[in-house]
Design a protein around this nucleic acid. Structure first.
Lengths: 223, 223
DNA sequence: TGATTTAGTCACATTTTTATCACATAAAAG
DNA sequence: CTTTTATGTGATAAAAATGTGACTAAATCA
C-alpha cells in the first residue's frame, strides 16, 4: 500500500523534527515546509498530500493565509497547531475550513490520535458510501440516491457526480472538470460539461440544485 | 442458511430499535442488551454471536470494559458506536481490539455497509451454502438452485456465479472478474465474460435478472 | 476412438451513451 | 436599454459497449 503523505509546516526546526519523527514511526511519509509560502508551493507541486499539519505563526505567510489559499482549490484535511492563548482564533479557523486543532504543547499520542481520526474521517474518499446533502453515492455498488430515491446514472454522469462530491463546495472550472472526469488529453468542446451537468441536474431531481453555476467559471457542488 | 446473529448493546431503547429494525431487514438475527453487564452475560451464554455493535457510554459497565472482558476469550468482531467528540478515545479503542467505529449520528446505510464490510473481513461469509435472492449455491455439493429448481451449470459458470454471489451488490468490472474467476494471468478477450454472463442469465431463468449490467464497467449481482 | 460437452473467439445486431450543434435564455457590460 | 457574452436545453448523429448466435478448439467421457 502506498504510504500516506503528510505535509508538516512550522518555522521551528525542532518542532518539525519532533513531528516528523513521530509520524514516520507511525508509517507516514512526511514532507516539510518552514514557512507559509513554501507550504503552498509544495502543496501545489506535489499533488498527493493527504493531510497538512500547519503552524499558525510563521514568517512570510501565516497559517490562516495558507488555509485560505489552499481551500480555494482543495478539501485536503488541515490540522492547525496553535500556541496556548490562540484558542480564540479557532472559531475563525473553522469557518476558513480548518478540520482540527492541536494546542502546543501536545503529546505525540494526541498528535497521532488526531491525525488518525482525521484521516479516517477524511477517507470518505475511499469509503464505499459518500453522503453529501441529499445525495448518496455508493462507489462499490455503483449506486446513487437522491433523497433516498435510486437514480440511474450513466458511466460519465456517475464519474462527474463523484468528482463533484469529492470536491464539494469548491468552484470547479470546465478545464478542471474535463481533465479529471474525461481523459487528461481530452480534446473537445468544453461545453460538453454543460450538457452533462444538465443531465445530472435533471436526474437528481430536487437535489439537482446542489450543483450551482458559477458564472464565468464553471460549477460547484454544494453540500 | 443459518442467519448471522448480531448483538446490539446500547442503553437507549430508541437507538436499539433503530439498529435492530435495519439489521433485521438486511436479514440478520438481532439480540439486544441494554448495558455492559448484560452484554457480557449474553455473549457468554449465547455462543454463536458473529458481531457486536457496542455503545461506549452505558451504565454499570461501559463499552471499553466490555471490549476488554470479551477480548480475553474471543475475537468476535466489535464495532463501537461513539458520540461526536469521543474521537480521541478511538486510539485507545483500537489497541483494545475494536474493529471499527461508527460515529453517531449515522445513516442506516453506513451502518449496514460497515457491518457487511466487517463480516466479510471476518470470513463469516465462507460458508458452504449461500443464498442470495432466489439463487442458492452449495459449494460443497456443487449444486445451484434458482427459485428452488436445480440448475445445471458448467464448471466456469459455477465459479462465475460463486464469485458474483460472494461479491453481491458490488460493481465488478471485467478485469476483476477475469482475475478472480479465470487465472490471474489470463490473457484473453474480456468479452469472454459477457458470453458466460449470457449463459448464466439464461440458465438462471427468472433469477437471471439478478445479474445487472453496469454500463461502461461490468456487472453486479443483486441480492 | 468418437461423441459430447465446455470454453473461448468472432462478427453482427442492438442498445446505450456521449459529443456536438443550434437556438433559447439569462447575466454582465457598455 | 441594447449589446455582448455565457449558460441552459433539446435534438441528433456518431461512438462505444453490450447482447447474441455461430463457430472452432479443447477437454471430457463413454
Amino acid at each position: 500500500m502506498q504510504k500516506i503523505k503528510i505535509l508538516v509546516v512550522d518555522d521551528e526546526e525542532r518542532m518539525r523534527k519532533l513531528i516528523r519523527d513521530f509520524l514516520r514511526v507511525k508509517g507516514y511519509e512526511v514532507t516539510e515546509a518552514c514557512d507559509g509560502e513554501e507550504a503552498v508551493d509544495i502543496f501545489f507541486a506535489d499533488n498527493d498530500i493527504s493531510l497538512i499539519l500547519l503552524d499558525v505563526m510563521m514568517p512570510k505567510m501565516n497559517g490562516w493565509e495558507v488555509v485560505k489559499t489552499i481551500r480555494k482549490v482543495s478539501n485536503v484535511p488541515i490540522i492547525m497547531l496553535t500556541a496556548r492563548g490562540e484558542e480564540q482564533d479557532e472559531l475563525q479557523g473553522f469557518s476558513l475550513g480548518v478540520d482540527e486543532y492541536i494546542s502546543k504543547p501536545f503529546s505525540p499520542k494526541i498528535l497521532t490520535a488526531r491525525v488518525e481520526a482525521i484521516l479516517r474521517r477524511a477517507h470518505v474518499g475511499d469509503m464505499d458510501v459518500i453522503v453529501c446533502g441529499g445525495v448518496e453515492l455508493d462507489r462499490a455498488a455503483h449506486i446513487v440516491r437522491a433523497n433516498g430515491e435510486p437514480v440511474d446514472l450513466s458511466f460519465k454522469e456517475f464519474e462527474l457526480l463523484d468528482y463533484f462530491i469529492s470536491n464539494k463546495n469548491l468552484a470547479l472550472n470546465r478545464e478542471n472538470i474535463l481533465n479529471n472526469v474525461w481523459n487528461f488529453d481530452y480534446f473537445g468542446d468544453s461545453r460538453t460539461v454543460d450538457t452533462h451537468v444538465k443531465k445530472l441536474r435533471a436526474k437528481l431531481g430536487a437535489c439537482g440544485n446542489q450543483i450551482k453555476t458559477i458564472w464565468g467559471m464553471g460549477y460547484k457542488f454544494e453540500a
